[in-house]
């Protein structure tokens, strides 16, 4: 009797594993069938938490739909959209001219802020000073009016849209950057700067402002005399900001269209603010 139970449980385990595999294999096939009530959204890790929340609210309003959000970076979002693996791609930047056959819809804005440790006496840096720190010409805070301590430069790993936007704004190439720490996501960058009084890094302003207001010892620097805050990004005066874009292969139709319109509407503004992004003004 014992044996039979054991055999049955073993067999059902095998069956379950098999089913799991089948789901993995055929999960890809169901992606393109948006009409069935499922949307697959992939891309920017900056946007994923926001889209997850918007997706939940959308599902609550449209009971027969399922929104599947996966991260992997803006490049993946765009590549998946081109290959038809995703119905909607998330890109935390504007589309480049080569990507113009795709259709992009801005749903919110995000700003990139320079962060220092809260104990660092530096109150502002010019663009030239930041460029010189990141290219390794300035290696001590004394040179830019701070205390006598070596600067720890925190950079982002290749492929992240934050890095691309930063390089583009400061007219640097990744080869020029002399980094001491290379990080993956925003939180890792913030923890690194919070743990090192002489570090400088750059992360999403939303994330930085949230963490700074929750007691982490970091401070956002103004850029060209504009304070780095959600307000200045919203009004468009903060120089280093980026649009959060939803990308589709062509002009959206059907469920995709309904979802994108929902994501743009004021019904999700509270969710956008919760994630420390800046909603569209309308």
């Amino acid at each position: 009797m014992m044996m039979r139970t054991l055999v049955h449980s073993l067999l059902s385990t095998v069956l379950l594993i098999g089913l799991a595999f089948a789901h993995e294999l055929f999960g890809v096939v169901t992606v393109s069938q948006a009409q069935e009530g499922k949307l697959v959204i992939t891309g920017s890790s900056t946007m994923a938490p926001l889209l997850l929340e918007i997706g939940k609210r959308f599902e609550a309003n449209h009971p027969d739909t399922r929104i599947d959000v996966q991260t992997g970076g803006s490049s993946r979002g765009i590549a998946d959209t081109i290959r038809g693996l995703a119905d909607i791609g998330m890109a935390s930047r504007a589309l480049t001219p080569e990507e113009s056959p795709l259709h992009g819809t801005v749903v919110a804005y995000d700003g990139i802020g320079i962060i220092l440790h809260a104990s660092n006496p530096i109150q502002k840096l010019t663009n030239a000073q930041i460029r010189s720190i990141y290219s390794g010409e300035t290696t001590n805070w004394q040179r830019v009016g701070g205390r006598d301590a070596p600067i720890t430069v925190v950079n982002k790993a290749q492929g992240r849209s934050t890095l691309e936007l930063f390089l583009q704004y400061f007219q640097l190439s990744n080869r020029d950057i002399h980094a001491h720490v290379v990080i993956g996501d925003n939180e890792q960058g913030i923890k690194t700067v919070a743990g090192n009084p002489n570090a400088i890094g750059y992360v999403s302003i939303g994330t930085a402002q949230y963490d700074a207001s929750h007691g982490l010892p970091i401070r956002l620097l103004p850029l060209q005399q504009v304070a780095a805050s959600i307000d200045t990004v919203r009004t468009g005066i903060f120089p280093l900001s980026r649009p959060l874009t939803l990308v589709t292969k062509s002009s959206p139709t059907g469920l995709t269209k309904t979802f994108i319109e929902f994501a743009q509407s004021s019904r999700v503004h509270d969710l956008i603010l919760q994630q420390y992004f800046v909603p569209l003004q309308n």
Partner: peptide, 9 residues
């Protein structure tokens, strides 16, 4: 480690 010999990581 950063306090002992920067950068730490």
């Amino acid at each position: 480690i950063a306090a002992w010999h920067p950068p730490g990581p």
